[in-house]
Amino acid sequence: MGMLDPLKGFGVTLSTMFKKVATEEYPEVKKVTAPRYHGRHQLNRHPDGLEKCVGCELCAWACPADAIFVEGGDNTDEERYSPGERYGKDYQINYLRCIGCGLCIEACPTRSLTMTNEFELADDDRRRLIYTKEQLLAPLLPGMEAPPHPMRLGENEQDYYVHGPELARRAGVPEGRIVETGTEEAGR
């Protein structure tokens, strides 16, 4: 025990006053999450606005918490929502069950389902936390048209998947940009 030990404590306090504050200013400054953060889901679209979801229910099967409900429907030539035979007629995710593990994203064969960086989901009603297809669908970007409409970018669904990126360029999506665009990017 030295004589100056009690003063040393004050020294620590004093030097901390000049250090950078560790506190995040969260509600005023929005927290930017990691780019691959597991936030709210999104159902993506093809460059012409058709939905990518084919209603295969693989996401619902992969979900360990049984949070996803999918009901497939048949496309017709008059009423087409996605290229190919089937589309997701009804799509619901219960955010009071979803644990954000991302197994649904891994299971999705058409990369229709992805996750956004949105995380402010708290609500006071259980019913409002079951997100429906309208809430989950990606916003329409310029050049997109709300379905139902016929296939604009090819003869059949093979064209959409095999020449996907090429078709997107031709439809006006710039090089290096992806079509899986969330609300934040759409606003830019």
Binding site: E24, P27, G100, F119, E120, A122, D124, L129
Partner: peptide, 21 residues
């Protein structure tokens, strides 16, 4: 319950968001 906060687990910002709501 007054407010439900989804997430597994919710990050601290989500808890702050729920508290502010």
């Amino acid at each position: 319950v007054d407010i439900y906060l989804p997430g597994c687990p919710p990050r601290p910002e989500m808890l702050l968001d729920a508290i502010l709501k």
